[in-house]
Computed example of a mutant assay.
Amino acid sequence: MRKTSILAASLSTLAVLTAMVAVPAQAGQHGRLVSVQGARGHGYVHSRDVSRQPGAISVSRGTQTNAGRGVASNRNASWADGAYHGGASRTFNNGASASRSTDVVNNGDGTVSYDYSRTGYDGSTRSVSGTTTRP
């Protein structure tokens, strides 16, 4: 009896794992929240949220410690009709932040236009833009 129940449990576990692997990523939203607490008040909380849609994705993450330190970051990208836009930012609890942005457009004549901008933690900004032929 015991051998039969172990075999049945193994087969049902295999069926569940196979179904999980066979499912493709679909549009939607999901997230996770993790809280780790240790001795003497040490610990942190971490969250992650992901949103996927056809032609776009957005990911937000945040970590906060019990000591008051923390960081929040966001990334996003979208693409459609020969155009791409991507961006990211990170902000700390002390107010320091940095960000970047990228835009690429297929001009339809064998060239691609691009625009890249980055702002550092010190507030300085660097931008690069232009047009180049497609490889």
Rank of each mutant, 00 (worst) to 15 (best):
H85K: 14
S129G: 06
G120V: 04
P24Y: 03
N74Q: 14
A67Y: 13
A22T: 01
L33N: 14
H46A: 15
R40M: 10
R75I: 11
Q64F: 05
G43M: 06
S51I: 07
A27K: 09
D115A: 11
Q53D: 07
S129D: 04
R100S: 13
S73Q: 12
R69D: 14
H46K: 12
R40L: 12
V50I: 14
S78A: 08
R32M: 12
N107G: 04
H85S: 12
T131M: 01
A8L: 14
V105P: 02
T18S: 08
T63L: 13
S97N: 13
T91V: 14
Q53I: 01
R100C: 11
G31M: 01
S78M: 10
G31L: 02
L33I: 10
N76R: 15
A88T: 10
A39Q: 13
Y44L: 09
A25L: 15
T91S: 10
F92G: 04
N106T: 00
T4Q: 07
L7A: 15
R134C: 04
I6D: 03
H30E: 07
A96L: 12
S113P: 08
H85A: 09
Y114T: 00
G68D: 02
A77C: 09
A9F: 00
S97G: 07
S113Q: 05
S47K: 08
V45P: 01
N106P: 00
G55V: 06
S47L: 00
G87M: 12
P135I: 05
S35K: 13
S47G: 06
T125Q: 12
A56T: 04
A19Y: 06
D122C: 00
P24K: 10
V59W: 01
S124E: 10
G28E: 04
R2L: 02
L17K: 00
F92E: 12
R118F: 08
G68W: 07
V36M: 11
D81M: 01
Q37D: 11
K3H: 04
V23S: 07
S51P: 05
V34A: 11
R52N: 15
S101I: 05
R100K: 10
A80E: 10
M20E: 06
G31I: 02
V36K: 09
R134D: 10
D109W: 06
M20S: 05
G120W: 08
T132S: 09
L17Y: 05
G86Q: 13
A98L: 14
R75A: 09
V21S: 02
V128I: 10
S60E: 05
